[in-house]
Amino acid sequence: MRFTALFAACTAALSATSGALAAPATEASINLQLAGGLSLSNNFGAPIPPWEPGCVPGWYYGDHQELLKIIIPWLKNDFICKLLELLHLGILCPHKPPYNPPPGDGWNQTFDGYDGAIQADDYLTFGLVDTVDDCKAMCGSVEGCTFINTYHDVNGKDGSPLLTCSLFRGCHGQDQATNKGGQTQPDGSIDHIEDSAGYCKQ
């Protein structure tokens, strides 16, 4: 009953602001449920951090939704983005960063090309992106984020070729990149980390 009332309120608000719903009712209800799962209390859809077994990305921000092998919020979906603006959950859809941002884009690189990912208590959330710039944009759209760790989780995340984007409250160096993978996947393969990089907001 409560979900129905929230859905009605959100769809009414969206109709008032956009003139019409951007998606059919069934897709709209799925999108509402997905957007509602993006809250700080559950690490914006990723309550199990990426270094623990059973982890699942909380969201995807990029242009290749067809590469997703799981159903997670796509943060380029107009309906989900409007819902996130209305719900005030501490996460928004980012604006697309410049194609080639100039040097000195407000970030300091703390390490690059490493075979381990950050594992730390100030973990906020993680998702999937296409590029490092997409991950930087995500950090700017998540309350409390000051550091990103991007890497390829080879054989992990259901075999996704997309870049993993982990967000943290504080800055970290390579010495805290202790997640080397080693988790057995459903198909029996073992994951490992490649091309890990860390960036801290200036």
Rank of each mutant, 00 (worst) to 15 (best):
G106D: 07
Y114G: 14
N108E: 14
P186I: 11
T125A: 13
D112T: 09
A120I: 10
C145Y: 03
Q185M: 12
L163T: 01
G106M: 09
Q183D: 06
K157M: 11
G182V: 00
S160M: 05
L162F: 09
L167S: 05
P161R: 11
K136V: 05
W107F: 14
E143F: 02
C139L: 06
F111K: 01
C135I: 01
G173Y: 03
K136Q: 10
T150E: 07
H152I: 11
Q176W: 04
I148W: 03
Q185S: 07
C165R: 09
D130I: 00
V154E: 15
D121E: 12
L128C: 04
A117R: 01
H172S: 02
L167P: 08
Y151T: 07
T110I: 03
F126E: 06
D134L: 13
D122P: 07
G113R: 15
L167W: 13
F168V: 08
D112N: 08
M138Y: 00
D121R: 14
I148N: 01
G127M: 02
V142Q: 01
L163S: 01
G182F: 02
L162H: 10
V129W: 02
N155M: 09
S141M: 11
M138Q: 01
D121Y: 14
S160Y: 06
N149H: 09
S166P: 00
G144F: 04
L167E: 02
S166L: 00
T164C: 11
G170S: 10
K180V: 15
D112G: 03
A120N: 13
G144Q: 07
W107Y: 13
N179M: 02
L128K: 00
Q109L: 08
F147Y: 15
T150Y: 10
T125R: 02
Y151M: 03
H152T: 12
S160K: 05
P186L: 12
A177Y: 01
T164H: 05
G156K: 12
T184N: 11
F147L: 12
V154C: 11
A177Q: 03
T110N: 07
G113S: 15
A177C: 05
G140S: 04
Q183Y: 03
G144E: 06
V154W: 11
Q119H: 09
V142P: 00
T125C: 09
